[in-house]
């Protein structure tokens, strides 16, 4: 088994807001190995993007962060802004959901890719251009489009540009936050295929955030399920789909299955005012007395873990 590359230990993120303290992430433990692709899945508002932003230290000022994010022996949470800038892009790249909003509308695509190269690698103008063209070809954009502007690109092509930029410095990890959610099915298949290809060819680990279980199946080696700011289950992909353990995981897999719709009743809890006990208990069909009183701990089995009283000894 490959060595661990990025380890998140007991990450807690709270936001100070007018409505009170929002408990966005609670005791997150995750590990990504070299060349592994890990997926974080959960509903909107469950805190999955917060985890991604915390890794890169991109959370807003009102966030209170504690815990450790160990990357190649360093705790990223202790780095200053200058050191962090050396990690972002160079070591850990990020791809966002809305590629259109990440590109500057008034500069040509090619120049935007080249700009990153000039700043990070101090390449000269023509060297940077050469490298940018190379990257464009690598992600399937015709070099003739070097001088075109973002609005001339479709969503799928914009996402290819983002992937080209993410690859520019041969990072060890790409964090992709819902990279295909804004794309349609055919384009999604193209982009997922590309992401998989480039990460395998360049030995890059993938940390994929999504709410689509189908995408998880296609892309990942293992996954973590997040609910209301907590990881409720971690498992290798085949084991998860074969035998989900946590009631929430089971409900997710069952909610849209071939036999019809089985929606999960109720709704996601309010993160400013959490109930005692297990955070899933009001929606859980196996809820018992202990679930209402005591917050369950992660129970580990050989390859997987689950946060549920029904599995603890």
């Amino acid at each position: 088994m490959a060595a661990s590359l990025l380890e998140i230990r007991d990450l807690n993120v709270k936001f100070r807001t007018d409505a009170g303290l929002v408990d966005a992430c609670n005791g997150i433990d995750l590990m990504i190995r070299e060349r592994e692709s890990l997926c974080l899945i959960g509903e909107s508002g469950c805190g999955k993007s917060v985890v991604a932003l915390a890794i890169l230290n991109l959370l807003p000022e009102n966030a209170i962060i504690s815990g450790e994010v160990i990357f190649k022996g360093r705790d990223l949470l202790n780095l200053n802004e200058k050191e962090m800038r050396g990690v972002r892009g160079n070591e850990i790249s990020m791809i966002f959901e809305q590629p259109g909003t990440c590109l500057n509308p008034v500069f040509p695509i090619g120049d935007q890719i080249a700009e990153a190269l000039r700043i990070h690698e101090h390449l000269r103008k023509n060297e940077a251009k050469e490298k940018a063209v190379e990257l464009m070809v690598h992600v399937g954009i015709s070099p003739q489009r070097y001088g075109e502007y973002p609005h001339q690109f479709s969503g799928g092509m914009q996402q290819r540009v983002m992937i080209a930029m993410a690859l520019a410095f041969r990072p060890s990890i790409i964090v992709a936050d819902e990279p295909t959610t804004s794309l349609d099915l055919i384009t999604q298949a193209q982009i997922l295929d590309l992401l998989k290809k480039v990460s395998q060819e360049n030995n890059i680990s993938l940390f994929l955030i999504t709410h689509d279980l189908g995408v998880v199946w296609e892309m990942c080696d293992s996954l973590a399920v997040m609910y209301a700011g907590e990881i409720v289950e971690r498992a290798p992909i085949y084991e998860f789909f074969h035998s989900p353990m946590h009631p929430y995981s089971k409900a997710l897999l069952g909610s849209i299955s071939k036999s019809g719709f089985h929606p999960i009743g109720g709704s996601v809890p309010n993160l400013t005012d959490l109930l005692d006990g297990c955070r899933f208990h009001p929606r859980c069909d196996k809820c018992s007395d202990i679930c209402k009183k005591l917050r369950p701990k992660m129970t580990y089995f050989s390859t997987r873990g689950v946060r549920c009283h029904h599995y603890s000894a």
Binding site: M157, L185, I186, A189, Q190, D193, G214, W217, E218, F241
Partner: peptide
Amino acid sequence: QALLSAIPAIGSDRRKRIILKGE
């Protein structure tokens, strides 16, 4: 057929996919 194979369906063979070229 291309549309159907683009569905990221759970349990499907990950390699058997028709990826359409171009836009």
